[in-house]
Nucleic acid binder design. Structure first.
Length: 825
RNA sequence: GCCCGCUUAGCUCAGCAGGUAGAGCACAUCCUCGGUAAGGAUGGGGUCAGCAGUUCGAUUCUGCUAGCGGGCUCCA
């Protein structure tokens, strides 16, 4: 074989060979155990960056390992093709988004191919392909049929830079998830998916997600924000107008001393119009106008409000309490109206103190009693009900859960309800590069869904991307003007496109039958492959993509299109590759492109090095200094195999003299097989590689000491297994070395090595002798030594004897196969 | 403010079930090679963040403290 490890030639050779041989193709095989390994598909933004490599390495090693274990593995790749950058490029550089996206896909695919990932490229898909988005539109129609899609006027998060609305989930700390611009509120007619309908199931089915990180489940649970409580109907004084509120603390109803409305609540203006309070309210609105929603409701912001001159009646005691509007009350949560109990709610407490409103204690702590004037903060803990008419003396918890809700329901003042923080999913986007919403507006027939057989509604070509109207699609007359499918008359198309998270909510199902064209997917293929057994991706999708996909899956199940509830059985969230602790991003100019490293060190080195940076879940600090180490390691493997082949060629002594060496070789081989297998199973790829490195070093030592030992069964096995174990991590070099060893193509189709339990155990062990827990001596003994022998061996050791002189032995503790501890006084 | 995680060699991390502190990289010394981003051998280096408890024995278990990181944060 070549003396030098020529990674360039090797990688090119095998890349070509693999492409022709289709060794990574996967088909349904009846009876075979299947695993669907999926890594979140990328948005094609150009060549791969280091983050892609870190991510796709994980799926690749796992997929290769499972295949070698005899599992039928699906490991596909595709493109999240729609999205803003392509459209911004169109505005900036005049390139059509389709062309821009196509070029970027080619660049990214090339990167991934260079890295040698074992994808079944025959299943490649792109969400911006009409054959794909046709079905995205089809799902929209199905959602519409089930009343899960609807159009409504709403205050929407508007990004002034992206010129589009954003879902709540896409607003991070008040800023646009994509471009970081401050998000403002705009009232618009928008399309929504009724995800709130599924809030309870999204919550309850988390029980099936034992294979997900607890942190992700917690985040989703918080996001859904289920709270149990009561709706209580307050009535406007001297009117029969009802003003329902939601509360989780019905036990404090007798402590209500005022009532609050959100600033945007329609009743605020209605109640004050033409009254002396009108100008105060106007001034308040003026104060709120310049303030973003986020700022207004931040905990640090001072409470602010105005009295509206109106009163409501508390149903439980008939008391009239004043109605105010306050900055911290949210229109979107509950009913936009709140009963205020300053004694037992911190926000109400601060508000009451500021405006001199009364505070009435209705829950007393069990030890001590509260005086409203002396309180410095609201008392929110458990206690006994007081000042609450017939409930005095009752435990607050019981009152909250049982007796007060019973009273409300009995008297018709309210009822038990569950409220969610989760909002419906706003899917309208006023952008071009997305799937058009398949709706037509006819003056005669109203809103008409595009008939299924007319799908896809194709994106038009004659669009002015810089168009400043509500959506670039408005600028295409061909697109905008159409005929009504119902009456044939003149009609206009909907010009909003769908949020790209809609596209990615079902791509994992499409992979099962990516070319199927009579339905979104082939039931048989889906029944075989789905759900995804192992999903891998970034923690940044903990809520967005993962929650939407779960929702989609549940709707599809209700549509009887699939028969599973949850799309992803197991989830691995990998950490980011960071630089100086900061996330890599194009804007910071610190993006690392793998291609340069592939050129200088090869794909195998890069894969190995990135996997070796640390455990998958941890953020990994990027440093180039170690990459040479990884490269050196592969060189060592290369030369070791060369040395071994020399042994076979030139040595004529097939029988080794040193049988100890043989046993050691067998032992380290099987110990490494065990370690690497177990590490891969638990995604500890970094330690698996370390174990292979140690194995290599040990083999060097052995071959140095006794080359003859390698011309044996054990020697052959050691070298073979080294290559077999390294193959999922470094696919190119191992394929080449496998060929050199005379192995049958392909190393990636060889069965994963099994270990022999007997050989994993070492024959000799180091017996540790302690006195009072401190190590005093180590003695090498046979592994099978009895407890009695251990005790005797230690007590007979001269060093121990010497140390025990003049001491009284109190107790001797023997840990079988490990140590003896002598307790002395 | 609340919740979670982390803290082991210069760096990145192992140490699963309490029982000799490890690996890779980096570093040092020696050797080899002297067609070039070479190789081999040996070695130094750690009060396992701090304090207390449980134990014959704690890096490992428990509690507290500190530092770092992440998530949530007027949701009624």
């Amino acid at each position: 074989m070549e003396e030098k490890y020529d990674f360039k030639a090797i990688e090119e050779k095998w890349r070509r060979h693999w492409a022709h041989s289709e060794i990574y193709r996967s088909d349904e095989e009846e009876g075979a155990q299947k695993k669907y390994v999926l890594v979140m598909f990328p948005y094609p933004s150009g060549p791969a960056h280091i983050g892609h490599v870190a991510n796709y390495n994980l799926g690749d090693v796992l997929a290769r390992y499972l295949k070698r274990k005899g599992v039928n593995v699906l490991h596909p790749m595709g493109w999240d093709g729609f999205g803003l950058p392509a459209e911004n490029a169109a505005i900036r550089e005049g390139i059509h988004p389709a062309k821009y996206t196509g070029e970027n896909i080619a660049l990214l695919r090339n990167s991934l191919e260079r890295l040698g990932y074992a994808y079944d490229w025959g299943r490649e898909l792109a969400t911006c392909d009409p054959e794909y988005y046709r079905w995205t539109q089809w799902f929209f129609l199905k959602f519409l049929e089930r009343d899960l899609a609807y159009k409504a006027q709403a205050w929407a998060n508007w990004c002034p830079s992206c010129l589009t609305v954003l879902a709540n989930e896409q607003v991070i700390n008040g800023h646009c998830e994509r471009c970081d611009t401050l998000v403002i509120q705009k009232a618009l007619q928008q399309w929504f998916f009724r995800i709130t309908e599924y809030a309870e199931r999204l919550l309850a089915d988390m029980e099936q997600l034992g294979g997900w990180p607890e942190s992700v489940l917690t985040m989703q649970r918080n996001w859904i924000g289920r709270s149990e409580g009561c709706e209580v109907i307050f009535r406007l004084a001297d009117s029969d107008k009802e003003m329902p509120i939601f509360t989780t603390r019905p036990d404090t109803l007798w402590g209500v001393t005022f009532f609050l409305l959100a600033p945007e609540h329609p009743l605020v203006d209605e109640l004050t119009q033409g009254t002396p309070y009108e100008s105060d309210v106007a001034a308040f609105h003026e104060r709120m106008r310049g303030v973003s929603n986020i700022e207004r409701t931040s905990m640090e912001t001072e409470k602010d409000g105005v009295f509206l001159g109106a009163y409501v009646v508390n149903p439980v005691n008939g008391e009239k309490v004043p109605v105010w509007t306050a900055n911290f009350v949210l229109m979107e949560y509950g009913t936009g109206a709140v009963m205020a109990v300053p004694a037992h709610d911190q926000r109400d407490f601060e508000f009451a103190r500021k405006y001199g409103l009364p505070i009435r204690v209705v829950i007393q702590p069990r030890d001590g009693s509260l005086e409203p004037d002396e309180m410095t903060e609201a008392y929110v803990d458990a206690g006994t009900m007081v000042n609450s008419a017939g409930f005095d003396g009752e435990d607050g918890e019981a009152g909250r859960k049982q007796s007060v809700p019973d009273l409300l329901e009995e008297k018709g003042w309210g009822s038990r309800t569950i409220n969610y923080r989760l909002r419906d999913w706003l899917i309208s986007r006023q952008r071009y590069w997305g799937a058009p919403i398949p709706i037509i507006y006819c003056e005669r027939c109203g809103m008409v869904p595009v008939p299924e057989e007319d799908l896809p509604v194709l994106l038009p070509e004659d669009v002015r991307f810089e168009f400043k109207g509500p959506s670039p699609l408005e600028s295409s007359d061909d697109f905008r003007n159409t005929a009504c499918p119902r009456c044939g008359g003149e009609a206009k198309r909907e010009t909003d496109t769908m949020d790209t998270f809609v596209d990615s909510s079902w791509y994992y199902i499409r992979y099962a039958s990516p070319r199927f064209d009579s339905a979104p997917f082939d039931d048989k293929a889906v029944a075989y492959w789905l759900p995804v057994d192992q999903y891998i991706g970034g923690i940044e999708h903990a809520i967005l993509h993962l929650l939407y996909s779960r929702f989609f899956t549940k709707v599809l199940k209700d549509l009887e299109l699939i028969d599973f509830d949850e799309p992803f059985a197991n989830l691995l969230c990998q950490g980011m590759v960071v630089m100086g602790g900061a996330k890599m991003s194009k804007s910071k100019g610190n993006v690392i492109i793998p291609d340069q490293f592939i050129d200088s060190f090869g794909a195998d080195t890069l894969r190995l090095f990135i996997l070796f940076l640390g455990p998958p879940e941890a953020d990994k600090e990027w440093s180039e200094s170690g990459i040479e180490g990884a490269h050196r390691f592969l060189n060592r493997v290369w030369r070791l195999v060369g040395r071994y082949l020399d042994v076979l060629t030139f040595k004529t002594q097939p029988v080794p003299q040193d049988s100890h060496a043989l046993r050691r070789i067998g032992h380290i081989t099987h110990r490494t097989i065990k370690k690497v297998s177990e590490d891969i199973e638990r995604f500890a790829f970094n330690t698996a590689i370390a174990a292979i490195m140690e194995f290599t070093n040990s083999l060097y030592k052995e071959i140095e000491e006794c080359a003859d030992a390698f011309n044996t069964y054990e020697g052959h096995e050691a070298i073979r297994n080294l290559i077999l174990l390294l193959a999922p991590f470094a696919p190119f070099i191992t394929e080449e070395l496998w060929e050199e060893l005379g192995g049958e193509f392909s190393v990636h189709q060889q069965h994963w090595p099994e270990y022999d339990t007997a050989l994993v155990k070492s024959e000799r062990i180091m017996l540790v002798a302690q006195i009072n827990g401190k190590v005093r001596e180590r003695i090498e003994v046979d592994a099978g030594i009895s407890e009695e022998e251990m005790r005797r061996t230690v007590l007979e050791s001269s060093r121990i004897k010497q140390l025990l002189e003049g001491k009284t032995v109190n107790k001797i503790i023997v840990v079988p196969g490990k140590l003896v501890n002598i307790v002395v006084r």
